[in-house]
Design a protein around this nucleic acid. Structure first.
Lengths: 285, 285
DNA sequence: ATAACCGTTGAAATAAAATTACAATATAAT
DNA sequence: ATTATATTGTAATTTTATTTCAACGGTTAT
C-alpha cells in the first residue's frame, strides 16, 4: 500500500483551506494523531470533527477516521522528513533514508501500475516470437541492455543497440519472427517513436515500457507496461534513478513471469550458463 | 517496542481459559482484528466484549482496545511467505510481493554495509581527480554506464568502456589526474583485477564497488564500497537483479553525496542539462 | 449591484464503539 | 457443604465516530 503521508503530501495543493490545515497538522504530528480522537484533533487544529472525518474519508473512504489512524500508525515508525526533497544539510543517514524510501515507493507504485493482463500479453508476445529487439536511448539504453542480459540467461535471442539503423536492419530482415521492446521513460523520445512506427508498419508487435500511457509512444504500442504511476515528478534531481530502478523492476517481473512458463527447462538453462560463467570468467551471474 | 504478538505468545501459558481463546484468535488473524470492533471480535471468538477489553489492557494498560489495535496494525503488514524462493505456482501477485521484498531487503543491507567513512573517502577521491574511469564487465558494465550517466549530469568527466585495452590506454595517459571505479559483484572478475593491478602500479586511486571485502579485488582497492552485505545467496535465480539494484543504489548515494559538496553549482548544472535534453531530445533526464 | 448557485464548513443529532459496574457463575479451599 | 475468590458475561454508561443539515462565503449570471 502506498504511504499515507506521502499521498497526503501529494494531494496537498488540491485541498481546501481547512483540509490543508488538517493535512499539515497530520504531516507534522503523525504519531500523536494516532492516539487522538476526532474531537481531540478537531480542537487542536482547530476545526470541526465533521471536517476531520471528511478528510479521513478522502484517503480511507471505507474505514473513515479509525482506519485512517490505523494506516497512520502502521507507518509512523518512520519519520516524516524522508518525504522531503534532498537538501544540502542532509547527513549521510538522512540521504540513505530518503533515497531508500523513494525506491520503495517507486516499486510499490510500479506494482499497482503493472496489471496482470498487460504483463501476460507481453509475455505472450515474447513467447511467440523468437527474435526480440530491445531498444532504449540515454538512460533507458541501460535498461535495454539489462533486458538483453536477463533473457540471454535463459537462451532467448535478444538484440539491443542504441543505433536505430542497426536495429532497423535486423528487425526488417526478420519481421515475421520478431517483436520489439521499446523503453522510454518519457514516451516522447524521437528515436523510440520512429522505431515504433517502423514496427507498426511491418506488423511487428511492440512492447513499450514507459512512464504513463498517454504518450505518443504508448499509443503506438501493442502492449504498454507502465512503471511508476506517479503523476507529478516533484524532484528534479532524483527522477532518473528511481525511474531506472522501476524499469529494472518491471523487467524483472517480466523475466520471472516468462521464466515460469517453462520453469524446469529455464532452471536447467540458467544453471548451465551460471556454471559456464563461473568456470571461465568468474563473473557475476 | 517489543512485538505485541510475541508478548502475547509468551504470556499464553499464564492466561485463563477465555483469555487463551482470545489470544489464539488474535495470533491467528492479527490483520483481521485490526479492523474489528470489540463486539465483532467478541462474537467471533466467541466471548464477551468485556473480556476483550480486559485482555487488551493486560498488554496495553493505558490505551485499551483501541491502542491494542494500533500496535497490532503497526506490526502486521508483512506476511511470511514472501521470504520463500520463487516457485512455478506463484501468482503474479506473489511474484510482485517476493521481488519487492527482496529489493527492499537488499537496499536495507546496502545501507548498513556502506559506511560513512568509506563513502566519504570515495567522494574525496572523486573530487580530487578530474578524470574518472568506470569499469565493469557483464552485468556490472550496466552499472558502470549508470555511473557515467549520473556524473555527466553534473559535468564530471567519466569514461567507461568494457574493453580493457581502451580503458588502460586513457588511464595511463592521464594517470596523475585519474581515478578508477571498478565494479564487480563477485570481486573475482579477471579483467577487473587486472585493471586494479595496473592502477595500483601507477598509484591511481581505486574505488571498488563489490559484494564483500574479502575478494582479491577488494584487497587491491583504495576504498571498498560494499553493497548488499548478504552472506547467504539462497536464490540462484534472483541474485543478478538485486545485486544490480544494490549497485545502482550505492552509486546513487555516492552521486548525491558528491552533489552535496557544491550543492548550488550542481543544481545549476543539472537544470541546464535537463533543459537541453528536454528541448532537443525529449528524452529521460 | 444583486440574486441564484455551489462548494465549504461547523453545530448538533445520531449511531457506533469502547469501557465500566455489577451480577452471575465457576473454581478452589476449608 | 459452605465460603471465599477468581473469572466471565450482561447491561448500563461513557466515549468516540459519523451523519445531517443549516449557515457561510465566494463566484457567476442577470
Amino acid at each position: 500500500m502506498e504511504s499515507l503521508i506521502f499521498s497526503i503530501k501529494q494531494a496537498l495543493p488540491n485541498l481546501t483551506k481547512t483540509e490543508q490545515k488538517i493535512a499539515n497538522y497530520i504531516i507534522e504530528y503523525p504519531t500523536d494523531v494516532t492516539t487522538m480522537s476526532v474531537q481531540d484533533l478537531a480542537q487542536k487544529i482547530p476545526t470541526s470533527s465533521a471536517s476531520i472525518v471528511r478528510f479521513s474519508k478522502l484517503f480511507c473512504p471505507d474505514t473513515g477516521f479509525s482506519g485512517f489512524k490505523l494506516r497512520l500508525s502502521a507507518e509512523s515508525d518512520q519519520d516524516s522528513e524522508i518525504y522531503d526533497e534532498i537538501s544540502p544539510n542532509d547527513s549521510m543517514d538522512d540521504l540513505k533514508k530518503k533515497l531508500s524510501f523513494r525506491i520503495n515507493q517507486t516499486i510499490l507504485r510500479t506494482n499497482t501500475a503493472l496489471t496482470d493482463a498487460n504483463l501476460n500479453s507481453a509475455i505472450k508476445i515474447l513467447h511467440e516470437k523468437n527474435l526480440i529487439v530491445s531498444f532504449g536511448i540515454g538512460a533507458s539504453h541501460i535498461t535495454a541492455e539489462d533486458f538483453q542480459q536477463k533473457f540471454f540467461r535463459i537462451g532467448k535471442t535478444v538484440i539491443t543497440n542504441n543505433d536505430l539503423h542497426v536495429i532497423s536492419t535486423i528487425l526488417l530482415a526478420k519481421k515475421e519472427q520478431a517483436a520489439v521492446v521499446i523503453i522510454s521513460n518519457s514516451g516522447e523520445t524521437k528515436e523510440a517513436i520512429e522505431l515504433a512506427h517502423l514496427a507498426k508498419q511491418n506488423k511487428i508487435p511492440i512492447i513499450v515500457l514507459t512512464h504513463n500511457n498517454v504518450s505518443a509512444l504508448a499509443k503506438l504500442a501493442t502492449v504498454v507496461l507502465v512503471h511508476d504511476d506517479s503523476t507529478e515528478n516533484s524532484s528534479l534531481r532524483s527522477a532518473a534513478t528511481t525511474s531506472l530502478i522501476a524499469q529494472f523492476y518491471a523487467i524483472d517481473l517480466l523475466y520471472y513471469s516468462y521464466f515460469k512458463l517453462d520453469f524446469s527447462k529455464h532452471v536447467k538453462e540458467i544453471i548451465t550458463s551460471q556454471k559456464y560463467i563461473a568456470k571461465n570468467f568468474k563473473e557475476e551471474s
